[in-house]
Every structure is written in structure tokens, then in C-alpha cells.
Simulated scan of single mutants.
Amino acid sequence: MKWRDGEAGQGAGEGVHDRWDNKLVASLERELGENYAVRYPHMPCEDNPRYAAWKATLVSEFAALEDGSILVGHSVGGTILTHVLAEQPPKVRPAGLFIIAAPFIGEGGWPSDDIDDGKDLSQRLPPGIPVHLYHGAADAEVPTAHVHLYAKAIPHAVVQTLEDRDHQLNNDLSEVARDIRSLG
């Protein structure tokens, strides 16, 4: 029985879908159990992500979602997912947005030639969507300051900085799964 669909977005880098982020997806599937179906699309040019190409893939994936679907993104995939959701939300109403170790684009964060500044994300995201942000305190890829920049840009977000966890949250998404299940 499928209770709720979810969409999991990958990070960026050569082979990341099959060698890194698949471990996050496996953890999420294991922690959520069989009442959840996780979709994990392969993003184009993962070693050199471009917003337009990833946006096209995400918009296509959005078309397959049902009301109450949950969106999960990691690293650059989380950044792009958040911006696409703010720019072109799905026709259905997502139950929540869960972003892990995502770089913030804008002042104090990282620059981007093809992603807009994230300072006004709160006004652009679908109204009422719960947002959860996670970041490992031992993340050597994306500084922890980025999750705090997201917290300023999305004041209603629930923020968790996890001690002794790396960029992949040590391949343990138990907190994310717990929070997804709490949506009911």
C-alpha cells in the first residue's frame, strides 16, 4: 500500500546519484517504511548542474505528484528544488519541503549565474508549506552558516543543525523521516 509519495532530489558531482546520494535515499526509504514510495530521479549533467536543465526535470517530475507529496532535496539539488518550487510550484499541494545541507544563493552564501538570490524565498514558496532545513555541524562541503541564511529567508522553517554529522548527515536520515512521518 502506498500512503504518500515523495520526491527526493540529489546533490551535484560526478557519479553522485549512484555512489553517494543513493545512500541517503536508502536511509530515507528504510526509515520511512513501506507505507511511503520514494521517487529518485536522475538529474542531467550531475557533474556540472545547470539550473535550467534541472528545473525542466523537476517540473516534469512535479507533474507526476499527487496532493500531499513530500519534496526532499540534498545539497545543490535542495537549492535548485527550493528555487524551482518558489518559481514554478506544482499544480498539486505538497505536504512539506525538506532540505538537507543546501548551499544558500545570495548575500553571505554562494554566488550563482543562473539562480536568483534566495533572500525572498518565504514570499515566493507556496503559501503554508511546512519547510524543514537540516545541516550537519561537521559539513566540510557547505558551511553551516548557509542553513542560518535559509532560516532568515524562510522564517517559518524548522531548522536542525545536527552535531557530528557531515554533508551527507552520515547517510542517516532518521530525523528527516521522523519529521516527514509527523506530518500525518
Score class of each variant (00 low, 15 high):
M1G: 13
K2G: 13
K2W: 13
W3P: 08
R4L: 10
R4D: 06
R4C: 12
D5I: 00
E7F: 13
G11L: 06
G11E: 03
G13P: 10
V16L: 07
D18I: 13
R19V: 09
W20I: 14
D21V: 03
N22F: 12
K23R: 14
K23L: 13
K23F: 12
L28C: 02
E29C: 14
E29M: 12
R30P: 06
R30V: 01
E31L: 02
E31D: 13
L32R: 00
E34Y: 09
N35P: 07
Y36I: 03
A37E: 15
V38D: 04
R39E: 05
H42W: 05
D47E: 15
P49T: 06
R50Y: 11
R50T: 09
Y51G: 07
A53L: 14
A53H: 03
T57Q: 09
L58K: 04
S60K: 11
F62T: 00
A64N: 09
L65S: 10
L65V: 04
E66V: 04
G68E: 08
S69A: 15
I70K: 00
I70V: 15
L71H: 07
H74S: 07
S75A: 09
V76M: 15
G77F: 09
G78A: 10
I80M: 14
H83V: 08
V84A: 02
V84L: 02
L85R: 00
A86D: 03
P89W: 08
V92P: 03
P94A: 11
G96P: 01
G96C: 06
I99E: 03
I99W: 10
I100S: 05
E107A: 14
W110S: 11
P111C: 09
S112H: 07
I115Q: 01
D116G: 15
K119F: 11
D120P: 07
L121E: 02
Q123D: 13
Q123P: 04
L125K: 01
G128W: 09
G128S: 12
P130M: 09
V131Q: 06
V131T: 13
L133R: 02
A137F: 07
A138G: 08
A138V: 08
D139L: 09
D139H: 08
A140R: 13
T144Q: 15
H146V: 09
V147C: 07
V147K: 03
L149A: 10
L149R: 07
K152F: 10
A153M: 05
I154G: 09
P155W: 00
H156C: 07
A157Q: 02
V159H: 05
V159L: 15
T161N: 12
T161H: 09
L162T: 01
L162Q: 05
E163H: 12
E163G: 10
E163Q: 11
D164H: 14
D164I: 09
D164N: 15
R165H: 15
R165F: 12
R165W: 04
D166E: 03
H167Q: 07
Q168K: 04
N170W: 06
D172S: 04
D172R: 01
L173T: 00
L173V: 02
L173Y: 05
S174T: 07
S174K: 07
S174D: 04
S174F: 04
E175S: 10
E175I: 00
E175R: 10
V176T: 03
A177G: 05
R178F: 11
I180V: 11
S182N: 08
S182K: 08
S182Q: 08
L183W: 02
G184M: 05
